[in-house]
């Protein structure tokens, strides 16, 4: 598996698809690819964790297989399920044609539990994937799933294999590229962490954020992008309920662009604040702190 020869290849590959990683993230991705280990990304909402997997898929040309976790997720949504209604139909047909009795019964049973009635969910799809390029398996927001699911996942990711009792064992010929994300509402088990390469995704620094916004918006002036990046960096220091992520910076800059604003002054900020701060309390807090003060600091950047 060779997409890369160096950390720089990773950086360039992702940048070509509009994702701008910092050194730490680029190194972690590089190692995950080279060592064929899952990559565990933790960080606050909107820092670009999920986007890593999507970009990897675009870059490598592999299919993106996404498993969104939630409390109570189980094998039928994550791994596979038998298509009971089609099995039943098959059975009825067999009965009607008299095949259901006698010598054919055994054969019928094995037919019922053959791959054609198996509905593969993302984990099994990733493992049973036949040919290169390897798919990208995104296990999103693992912290929402429960302990048992995590334990199961650890087994799958250690072996890159899954056994379906009625069918046998699937083993990945082409190991998937695995990206696991967590908002850290709870800690992921140590054993799973040990299996993965780990990276804590931070908010980007000012320069990177400017670069990201430029890359992800059209026709927004450099001056406005600078102001947005600077204001957002300050918002993140205010202890808000939901500090804005990169997604919000991009949204804010785009709406300013659409409005044709020449600069970010208090009035325009006031009119567009909903694009960057989603909670009324947070908007209130920023107003109390003083929009003017926050925007003023911009000119000194």
């Amino acid at each position: 598996m060779t997409y890369t020869h160096s950390v720089d290849d990773v950086r360039c590959g992702l940048e070509a698809h509009d994702y701008l990683p910092d050194d730490g993230l680029a190194t972690a991705i590089f190692l995950a690819l080279e060592l064929q280990r899952p990559l565990l990304l933790e960080g606050e909402p909107g820092v670009g964790k999920t986007e890593v997997a999507k970009t990897l898929a675009r870059w490598t040309g592999g299919d993106l297989l996404r498993l969104q976790c939630y409390e109570g997720i189980d094998v039928t949504q994550a791994v596979y399920e038998w298509d009971y209604s089609r099995q039943l139909l098959h059975l009825r047909t067999a009965e009607a044609t008299g095949r259901a009795t006698g010598v054919d019964a055994d054969e019928l049973e094995s037919e019922l539990y053959s791959e054609r009635f198996l509905v593969k969910r993302p984990l099994l799809q990733a493992i049973a994937y036949g040919q290169p390029p390897a798919p990208v398996l995104l296990i999103d927001e693992i912290d929402r799933a429960d302990d048992e699911f995590e334990a199961f996942l650890l087994e799958v990711l250690s072996e890159y294999a899954i056994t379906v009792p009625e069918l046998g064992r699937f083993h990945a010929d082409v190991p998937p590229i695995v990206v696991i994300t967590s908002n850290r509402t709870r800690d992921v088990h140590d054993a799973l962490k040990r299996r993965c390469l780990y990276h804590w995704v931070d908010h980007p620094d000012f320069d990177r954020e400017v670069a990201i916004i430029s890359r992800r918006t059209d026709g927004v002036s450099d001056a406005i992008i600078d102001q947005v990046a600077s204001a957002v960096a300050q918002f993140r220091q205010l202890g808000l309920y939901k500090p804005p992520g990169v997604a919000e910076s991009i949204d804010w800059a785009s709406s300013l662009g659409r409005l044709g604003a020449a600069a970010l002054d208090v009035e325009t900020a006031e009119a567009t604040i909903g694009a960057v701060l989603k909670y009324r309390e947070d908007q209130q807090r920023v107003r109390e702190y003083g929009l003017a003060k926050l925007l003023e600091a911009d000119s000194n950047v």
Partner: peptide, 25 residues
């Protein structure tokens, strides 16, 4: 449920490493 069945099936073929880390957890 079926999930545990699968898990158990997996475990019979699973590598000892996992079991060890489970026990020492």
């Amino acid at each position: 449920d079926i999930r545990h069945t699968v898990q158990r099936a997996l475990r019979t073929e699973g590598e000892p490493l996992i079991r060890a880390s489970t026990v020492q957890s």
